[in-house]
Design a binder for these strands. Sequence first.
DNA 1: CTGAAAGCGCTAACAC
DNA 2: GTGTTAGCGCTTTCAG
Lengths: 347, 347
Amino acid sequence: MILKPSRTTIKEVAAAAGVSTMTVSRVLNERPDVSIETRKRVKKIIEELEYQPSALARSLIQQRSYTLGVVTAGLKHIGPSRTLNGITQMAEEAGYSLLLKELPHYHTNQTAPILQELLSRHVDGIIWAVPEIGDNHDWVNELALPLEIPIVFLTMETRERLTIVSVDNYQGGRLVMEHLLAQGYQQIGHVAGPLDWWEARQRMAAWRDALTERGVVVKDAYWAEGNWSSASGTEAAEKLFAQYPEMDAIFVGNDQMALGVLQVIHKRGLRIPTDIGIVGFDNIPEAAYFYPALTTVHQDQLEVARVAMQEMIQIVACGWQGEEQPVPQSIMISPTLVVRASSLKNL
Amino acid sequence: MILKPSRTTIKEVAAAAGVSTMTVSRVLNERPDVSIETRKRVKKIIEELEYQPSALARSLIQQRSYTLGVVTAGLKHIGPSRTLNGITQMAEEAGYSLLLKELPHYHTNQTAPILQELLSRHVDGIIWAVPEIGDNHDWVNELALPLEIPIVFLTMETRERLTIVSVDNYQGGRLVMEHLLAQGYQQIGHVAGPLDWWEARQRMAAWRDALTERGVVVKDAYWAEGNWSSASGTEAAEKLFAQYPEMDAIFVGNDQMALGVLQVIHKRGLRIPTDIGIVGFDNIPEAAYFYPALTTVHQDQLEVARVAMQEMIQIVACGWQGEEQPVPQSIMISPTLVVRASSLKNL
DNA sequence: CTGAAAGCGCTAACAC
DNA sequence: GTGTTAGCGCTTTCAG
């Protein structure tokens, strides 16, 4: 089969079939009110001419494009790209095309032009898949609320009147702590991600709360802040060992930092998990092959995308049918703990 | 500022400014033939109404959308997402929007519908960023050649009449081998990626050629095939040690498999790089924090994207101006060797 | 310098 | 069942 660009128009098909463009249109849209014969004839011509209707022209007249805008950031990191992977799959399944924008930085005050551009391309909705860091979501009340098309946020702190889908990082942290405590670890330190990240704060809060509930008075010496990189994990671990020598376990804010932590532990000649237990967060593919294999928290990004897409479609459908929109809500997806050798003191 | 969807039309602007839509259009497109006063007045109204022209309507009439289709696969892996990252950056810079499609699998015979859909949305060109595996590019002669819009392929074997941009995997492999030989390693084994991948074959060919040039008769016992995963790296390493005990270095097809290989080496109590040297490929962020830090080959995906976008823009521009198209060519981007502890026998 | 008419490719609304 | 008219939002062409 040879593809031509969609330059064959409905007019040519109509002419070739000896009918009006309207009839061709009806055939294309599988309307019932076309006689069997005409339908057959038109379909044959469509095949022959390899006619492909213009989604652009359709979008224009139907005021609906079946296209969603996706805004992301930090695609070169595994987290955002996993999220995007989930979105592409769900969008495909739902019959939507995606218009992709990647922010140059996590922080950008250029959100208005980006929304403008997506709007100018008549997207039916927007998925904002940029992690919440510092004040990089401060624009939402000003810009997102008045937007007449739906916008669904991923990985953002709960806010009134907005539709948000996030993995429950706090719960993930609690899973880690329950596990470590159940294994008999007592002196649990924490390597936090950068605390301007909402996710890092959630994970840390879980650590702090779990300890506090056990009656531990959490001191500043018990934790150190990293920046998600393995290098920062190394630094943080050195610091922690210096200021908290009794430490017998570390809850590390992500797997990459955990890798850096492991290095420090090996250099110090400590045994894992006997002398010290380690747990990470994210379940990157490599984590199962760290030395030792790393216990970590798995986030189901496909599930996040599925829920986000469901919400989106529901809102779009309601707007389309003139029905009342569902109340915006914040939905949390539960993560799961993947237990491996690095934290299994009791075998 | 409050954004409305782009429902403010050029008509309303024209009415509010007391001019025809044509004049507004001229102002929008910065045409010179509008009086200063009229221009000012129109611009003011545009501001006030927050008017945003419809890119859709423009695309329809101009027969040009300033949109490119991007087809990718395996986004959840770091390689493809890095590539996509480069593409988004370069597209933004060039003023193009991106319509993203992710194939459900690397092998799919559903390429025609995907091209069709992109065409129906009037993309100006297509970037096919799916790695070449088995016969998953066999459709190109049939479908891509007759396409009236340009299509640029990434990471594909050279083919006549097609525009292709790839990292030179063969050269990368040669860099690895030069380095290992220079370090004094003699018995160099290879853990290949899955050999239906073009990239894996290129890397392996470099290994084989380098040894052959040194007068080594390459035996089947000297290599094993993996599937890119750390698990397969472990298996391959076990197999290699069994069938090639004299081995003093391993060139591993990617970093993730190298991680699995490292595990095996540690369990066997061998010292790196004294007893055995290891080199990977890809330079994933974690590689610098493997134990020991991994020597590997870095691929500049941003450069790949830049070159691909340049080619694309050039071809589009020529088609637009009715000029002759440049001759399709296959462009190779040189990778670089990142030397770390895992292969530094001589310090 | 400005506007009127025509039309990009398609479909909603109404005829017949 | 089918065709006609009108128009989505914009720009091209040509008149003035």
